[in-house]
Design a protein around this nucleic acid. Structure first.
Lengths: 239, 239
DNA sequence: CGCGCAGTTGAACCTGTTCAAGCACCGTGG
DNA sequence: CCACGGTGCTTGAACAGGTTCAACTGCGCG
């Protein structure tokens, strides 16, 4: 079941300009945002697919379109001149990217897994803001959620230790009401996790090994983690 | 001169429920956001003053009102259970706080200097979103700007060295087109700066001393910094 | 005058980085 | 089928940037 948007009912009209109708395992994370489609903008929508690693847009590109993730995982990041990179977010289906930006994108968006997105011309945002209250509300909610996530991550990156960060990351990837034994998938590589948490690959690896040694988690494979002791994991995460 | 809001003209009606009509030195920073008042909401506005250090709202409080800063500097922060604190933002006049939050505030807002704010009931936001396109646009812009700032700060805190952070901070507090000799005021204490940059007080102090020794800045007083060599400061900041 | 707070400076320590090597998995090609 | 090379992950050991703890300074204010 999907949480409906706040207070305002959406027409049940579905976008029909494509066939990629999300049905994947990774959609488990962060379903806080409403799952409505941007139906009223359907006529100007365009479906696009990206291979693993492909760029959807880059920092500095003209921001003439916004994108709704339908399938796969997208990575938002910023890179400094000397190559230091900060991953801002991993975006999963039903979320929108490119909304913050004005004329120019302020971050790079790349597909972490093969991904399908729907893009809308940026102008349609303004149109919606003026005339379509429901969509305006949806966009507003999206922005608010993004802002809140950024703030949480600022605390994570600014004030938590490496172990706390990794533990927090695992819990973020788990269900809200995760129970012991739950399996968490990590579709992104260690480098992505490291740049998300603002530590090095080695530190991530060491933390995971430590958790494994302590019996907090099990690792069937590098991309898959089983939460063995969520209680203690929460403890380590400082939550 | 103040930058007008995006595309849509505002009625020139001014809020008259108070007498604190912003005229201060600290308004130099970040005038990127539009400076329109939330005029259409005037009838439900309420002016409030806060002493230095006073809390406007706290993390976890019911978020029944939003606030527009009129005068002074407000600090937004989150604190972990064990006391570690992350300052999320310093908010100066013409910006709005409390907008991200849903039913409950996700951060604490406190006055860094004596401050005057105008508060509006949260419900008026929904009202505006539905009926008042101009105000909706204003709020949207505010949220977008906040999201972008968060992302920039995430890179700052996640991927920059202590010296880079402090240098960046000084430049952020300066005019966009600052020239050598420009004076920057630091109304907040070292502890606030430290928690904003996610370092310790000592590190901030050392960086400033280093910059002073190198002739990049001068310090007439602890709260006031003169930028002596902006070029090199930019260099240190990595910009 | 003396207390108290904010900021600065110094020195030891520690967490996470850096550099370097080793390992496991996997698709390719012989 | 297995050798091969590549990539991504893990592990180890030395290093370093920033923290921590502690002392000192300077200034405002009772």
């Amino acid at each position: 079941m999907r949480t409906q948007g706040p207070a305002i009912a959406m027409p049940s009209l579905q976008v029909s300009t494509g066939n990629a109708t999300a049905s994947l395992a990774t959609s488990r994370v962060a379903p806080a945002a409403p799952a409505q489609r941007l139906a009223p903008l359907a006529d100007r929508a365009r479906h696009v697919s990206f291979a693993r690693g492909a760029a959807i847009f880059r920092d500095g590109d003209a921001a003439d379109r916004i994108y709704e993730v339908r399938n796969g995982v997208v990575r938002l990041s910023k890179t400094l001149a000397d190559g230091r990179r900060q991953v801002l977010d991993f975006v999963e289906p039903d979320r929108i990217i490119g909304l913050h930006d004005g004329k120019v994108h302020g971050a790079t968006a790349e597909a972490v897994t093969p991904a399908v997105l729907v893009s809308y011309p940026r102008s349609s945002v303004e149109t919606a803001m003026a005339g379509d209250a429901a969509t305006a509300c949806r966009l507003m909610t999206e922005l608010r959620a993004a802002a809140m996530r950024s703030e949480v991550r600022l605390v994570l990156v600014g004030r938590k230790t490496a172990d706390e960060r990794v533990a927090t990351f695992l819990l973020m990837r788990a269900h809200r009401d995760a129970a012991d034994g739950e399996e968490v998938s990590l579709p992104m590589g260690r480098a992505d996790i490291a740049d998300y948490l603002a530590v090095t690959i080695e530190t991530v690896s060491r933390a995971l090994s430590k958790f494994k040694a302590g019996g907090l988690i099990a690792m069937p494979g590098p991309q898959s983690i089983v939460l063995r002791d969520i209680e203690r994991l929460r403890d380590v995460a400082g939550l």
